[in-house]
Design a protein around this nucleic acid. Structure first.
Lengths: 339, 339
DNA sequence: CTGAAAGCGCTTACAG
DNA sequence: CTGAAAGCGCTTACAG
């Protein structure tokens, strides 16, 4: 069978290919009768426009790039799900680009990506979304981008956030309401702005409840399970031992649970544990983790949708939105008991 | 700044654009002197060929599609990692396409994908890689494809496998060598051919050791954590209670561990548990899971590399390879003790 | 409301 | 070994 192109359709419908193009792009200035004829031809010939030809004529690729560097597979999958849905709705393709923030020559890497894949736009996920040099680079190159981030900058870019600080505040408040006063905190990776936000929420909850902030209860993690194990060993050997631990993500919280088990501590009887992210592991371990669920898919979906809208219409003003997170209470947190 | 195209390079180097094209594609029949001149021009102008224009002229997109439908995020990520690496090595882009095997009109979905994204080829991961109708469809459409699969068909397609049956045999043998005779088995999702392969390996190990195969010890799962919980509740209430459980993947094995904890059974003292896949959860829970590690990234890498080679040279004969899996022993398995 | 021309940045024949 | 022409399947000006 021969190839069905815009020319076949034009011939079949008895119009010029420019007219076919108009119908294809939903342009005005086509009479209803003509439009009908062309649409009928589309159906009869089972015509599918060639996006490559379209791209060349338009100087567009209809491809959005998605940048990430995250140890959590479930987070990545959620980002992809949201981005993919938005792309499909608008007939765009999604190109995934995992890469290391700390890798050499990030900007070179991105520059090459932009050229070789001819991206029309790029969506930045944490920690890239908080990288000033990267954002400036894209701005200078005039590449449309949008950010899925934990902080809304006073930037003029498209950013979709979720209030990490407030969520951390809420979960700390929960621990306090259960009677805990010695609450350890495990920090995340310093490259992520969420790390600082979550710590701020923790501090604020303590302060509001009149509890002292103790530097000795703060431990450095980096979001990995392994770092959580190390932190847990240090924290659970403190005297007095904290009665609760709030880890900045669920992997580290799961590691705390493991170390607690090894130390024969019963959770939540001897120790309450809270995490962040609602990763699958939060419900795959026992006891399940009390944690924070963010609407990651939805955030990414909006970020990509707005990005494509801006690509189609560069005049569009920028868009910022903060979506709410949700506290999920499971079995890993319980009332304080003196030991 | 103006755009650098093949014309700019041709002018700069003082040759025709056809000659530039030859250098670009590493074709023969270019004098060394000319080649040098052109290469120098590439550098001086920082020329990057436009893949879209190339694609249109070639009737190629330089895009490979990756099809998957898998509940395990870590598996998906591993597949993507391998596929992405292979694509980048050969200057291809990767398009991810999660979709439901059981969804309505799979073939329509794929047909649309092929057209709207202009894929040059497609890599099938389980369970798609075992779908005869899908494979036949691609063959009829003459779309190059390759399979990452648990079974090598006597098919003429590119397939990269790993011997699931043998791995399941090995892990069952391990349990038997530890003294277990009542070993329950939780099956995976029926759509995956791995499900049957793993059961076969289990059976073979029993048989070889002179142990009877008991239908009552086999439970239906579907690879999800939830199904593992259900199976575990049934299995751990059997009389006599099995002293070991081999679950067809790690999520179900983790669920068995959870149910065992709830029933106050100590692992591995009262119950040994083995999984499959070496998912992150296998080392994130305590005790860690004895399991099987397959070289998923490597399998996918080879599958995509061979696919692209075949796209570039359709004369190439098909390629089949089986990679070995590896048994990983952790704390969840131990010697049999009578209760 | 409709169309003929030129062009997007490359490559495939075809000449020489 | 090198190049001028035509074309890939669309779209953007420009006319009418």
């Amino acid at each position: 069978m021969e190839k069905i192109t815009i020319n076949s359709v034009a011939k079949h419908a008895g119009v010029s290919k420019k007219t076919v193009s108009r119908v294809l792009n939903n342009e005005a200035n086509v009479s209803d009768a003509t439009r009908e004829k062309v649409l009928a031809a589309f159906k009869e010939l089972d015509y599918k426009p060639n996006p490559i030809a379209r791209g060349l004529a338009n100087n567009r690729s209809f491809i959005i790039g998605c940048l990430y560097d995250n140890p959590s597979k479930s987070y990545i999958t959620r980002v992809q799900t949201g981005a993919l849905a938005a792309c499909q709705e608008q007939q765009y393709n999604l190109l995934i680009h995992p890469c290391e923030l700390r890798g050499q020559a990030l900007l070179d890497n991105i520059d090459t990506l932009l050229h070789t894949s001819q991206l029309d736009g790029i969506v930045l996920t944490p920690p890239f979304s908080d990288q000033k040099p990267l954002v400036d680079f894209l701005k200078a190159k005039k590449i449309p981008y949008s950010r899925v981030a934990s902080v809304l900058l006073e930037d003029d870019s498209i950013s979709i956030g979720s209030n990490d600080g407030y969520a951390a505040y809420e979960i700390t408040k929960l621990l306090i309401s259960l009677g805990h006063t010695e609450i350890a905190f495990i920090k995340g990776h310093p490259d992520h702005s969420a790390t600082e936000q979550r710590l701020l929420g923790y501090k604020q909850a303590l302060e509001e409840s009149g509890l002292p902030f103790k530097e000795s209860l703060i431990d450095e993690g980096n979001f990995s399970y392994h770092s959580g194990e190390d932190s847990a060993r240090r924290i659970l050997n403190l005297t007095p031992r904290p009665s609760a631990v709030f880890a900045s993500n669920d992997y580290m919280a799961a590691a705390v649970l493991k170390v607690a088990s090894q130390l024969k501590l019963s959770v939540p009887h001897d120790l309450s544990i809270a995490g962040f992210d609602n990763a699958p592991i939060a419900r795959h371990i026992w006891p399940g983790l009390t944690t924070i669920a963010q609407p990651v898919e939805q955030m990414t979906h909006i970020a990509v949708t707005k990005l494509i809208e801006q690509i189609k219409n560069p005049e569009l003003e920028n868009y910022q939105e903060n979506l709410p997170a949700r506290l999920i209470t499971r079995e890993s947190t319980g009332p304080y008991r003196s030991s």
